[in-house]
Nucleic acid binder design. Structure first.
Lengths: 181, 181, 181, 181
DNA sequence: TATGAATGAGCGTTCATTCAT
DNA sequence: AATGAATGAACGCTCATTCAT
């Protein structure tokens, strides 16, 4: 009957952080949105910042899981295609997380978590991409992978800002064609 | 001898907003950094938010000016090259502005200014790019321009996050090659 | 096997109140220290303040008992010696209670309990001392008893603050000599 | 026309801390008592604890000044008499400070300041008393000085708790007689 | 009797903003 | 134009207390 209140708090917090920004969201607002007393959050998280960390961690775990496909070897073209597909699908299904993440990633204070969780994933992705580009005969696979990564990143952010103009799926085809996939 | 105090305030604010974030920067800190009294800011701006708006406006004016080259007709390849060069140069010379902008752009409250100032520039750039891509014979010039725009955007953001790994200039060459320029 | 949980709560509370102060000790901390659930305290006490009252009452009962020796008549010199010995012994065996009591005794809110429990004991002691000093021929037995009482009180407090410098036993001999006992 | 608001805050805080205890006094109550906005305190003190420290420091400065008489050499009997007189006078004129101090001195958290400011004064007083008792031919001047110090201390505390019963001046004469002064 | 999740009032603190000078 | 002391609303957080189990 009673849904998990910790989850309700996290959902409410993620929604509000994404919508209004971390700094503009009060604990009171989260509690109201979650339909819960203000103090309850502190049974599950040490502080507002710890709640943010919890949300980011949970989000990155989802990313990690959606990236598990890379653990098995694939032909490079398929691997790249899968990367795009998986990324776009994860963004589509976790818009609030990605809005929050991209809104926060440039702030020094948060770079700590990001450097742990995100930087690893980023490094892994860049390496995997470089390997695949090398297999495909690209001249500068490292630069190529950075460019590719930045392109996907930029697409995601622009999609989050203005989903109608920047439809991920319509551009996906163009990318595949561009990379002869 | 005495420099314009309004400019000093704006410079201090931009520096601190970029460094610590808008929400984590107090009026007191800005006044301290600018070497003026706390109340002085309110002679020039109605509020802290108005100061932010002022900074964004000024920044976008700079962007507009650096884009004035587009007003004159150029061969499409040169136009695209110029766009990249101008963008990267503006970013290199206005890191604080771009850090602030990208840190803030996803928040609903700020989208108001952005929809006025930035969206216009964005639309203009997208149209110009599309025109040029069309001239160059690309099949889907609109999608192509969005992809290109997102790529540049993503590069800039990744550069701002980690300038050493994402050197703009080393990737610039790759882009030019990619687009046969 | 299972000790009385009420006693465990009271012991934990006394320890923590003495160590960290009443105001700095939370019910949660007491429950943790006592190894019981947070809510259990309210089965035995109406409130945190009532728990404090319970601790003070129990402490004063102990004082009362250790003073029972006075109920039997003694030669005045022996009575005074016994008072010192009993007091110092009780302090040595109940440091936490005395720390708590002396830390709290000056606050108006607590004076209520003190005026009931403690004031009676104090009055009794002062009277007994005065009687004995009178028997010993002192000119102002009332003033003399107050001075004596304050001296013992001051020694105890200074001992609690700094046991090494203010050793009760080494000063006890000096007092006995001073009063020709 | 306008009295110093920092002083008003300190006075209000000292009064309330002495009356209700440090932990039971809110910043809001201090501001109300001082007739001032809540936030103003933080223009003068970093925190509530810093305000407490400020009050204790100011109080100890007063003690130091009232002890300046000891800097000049006096015959031992006069020195002791002066100590009593100065102490009682200072207590009479600074009841709130002494109530606050004695209510707080047993708490570990505050012992830091006390060990700096107060412990020095205490050590100085104990040494001076011991010197004077030695000059007067007492057998154990160190123990004697501790006993004397504790006696005065106890008298002050009992006076603060119950000024009517423990009149300092009526007991002062008894002390002087006791020490043949 | 015992649990501990949930509550919500109240705290210390910050800070955008005002205003007398 | 310029100052900075003063304001007070709002924040993050704590914790005594309650209550369904």
């Amino acid at each position: 009957m009673k849904t998990n209140q910790k989850d309700q708090i996290m959902e409410a917090a993620l929604r509000l952080f994404a919508e209004k920004g971390y700094g503009n969201t009060s604990i009171a607002a989260i509690a109201r949105e979650a339909g819960v007393a203000q103090g309850l959050m502190y049974n599950y998280f040490d502080s507002k910042e710890d709640l943010l960390r919890g949300l980011l961690e949970k989000g990155f775990q989802g990313v990690q899981e959606s990236m598990s496909a890379y653990n098995e070897p694939h032909p490079p073209q398929k691997a790249i295609a899968m990367h795009i597909t998986a990324t776009f699908a994860h963004v589509a299904g976790n818009k609030d997380f990605w809005r929050l993440f991209h809104a926060i990633k440039l702030q020094d204070q948060v770079q700590a978590y990001i450097n742990t969780e995100y930087a690893e994933a980023k490094t892994f992705i860049l390496k995997t991409l470089a390997t695949n580009f090398k297999k495909l005969g690209y001249k500068s696979p490292n630069e190529e992978s950075k460019l590719f990564f930045a392109m996907i990143d930029g697409l995601v952010v622009n999609h989050l800002m203005d989903p109608k103009s920047f439809s991920l799926n319509s551009i996906k085809k163009l990318i595949l064609k561009k990379y002869h996939i």
